[in-house]
Amino acid sequence: MDHSDSYRREVTAKVETGWRIEEETQDRVTLVQREFGDPGIHLLIAILTIWWAMGVPNLLYAAYRYFTSSQRTVIWKDRPEADVDEPATSAE
């Protein structure tokens, strides 16, 4: 099996599971997965603050979670076959 086939398959699998390509170079792809927060927390914030703040705290919470709860992973093109089973994920 060719390294590039394994590389393309791994990137495609990540994209299909919700990861987004953040940066792509000749030898690697950086993928990112972001979230907007827990729906239960959004509901609680809305119940407690909707009358006084008109949803602004919900937007602030979503923005906070979007930028602080992102996960990134790097997939290298010429990674040896022995390393394929090792996770390359790092949380930020």
Rank of each mutant, 00 (worst) to 15 (best):
M1V: 15
M1Q: 03
M1A: 13
H3S: 12
D5N: 09
Y7W: 14
R9T: 14
R9A: 15
V11C: 11
V11I: 15
T12E: 13
K14C: 14
K14L: 06
V15L: 15
G18R: 03
R20E: 15
I21Q: 04
I21T: 04
E22T: 01
T25C: 06
Q26Y: 06
D27F: 03
R28Y: 07
R28W: 10
R28E: 09
V29Q: 02
V29E: 01
V32E: 14
V32C: 14
V32T: 10
V32S: 13
E35T: 15
E35A: 15
D38F: 09
P39G: 08
P39K: 01
H42F: 02
L44D: 03
L44Q: 05
A46N: 02
I47Q: 11
I47E: 12
L48G: 08
I50M: 10
I50V: 11
W51D: 02
W52S: 07
W52K: 08
A53C: 15
A53Y: 11
G55K: 04
G55V: 00
V56A: 02
V56H: 06
N58H: 02
N58M: 11
N58C: 05
A62W: 00
A62E: 01
Y64A: 13
Y66K: 14
Y66H: 15
F67P: 02
T68Y: 04
T68W: 08
S70R: 11
Q71G: 00
Q71H: 05
Q71K: 13
R72E: 07
V74E: 02
I75N: 00
K77G: 01
D78R: 06
R79I: 04
A82S: 12
V84H: 12
V84E: 15
P87F: 08
T89P: 08
T89M: 10
S90T: 14
A91M: 01
E92W: 02
E92T: 06
E92L: 01
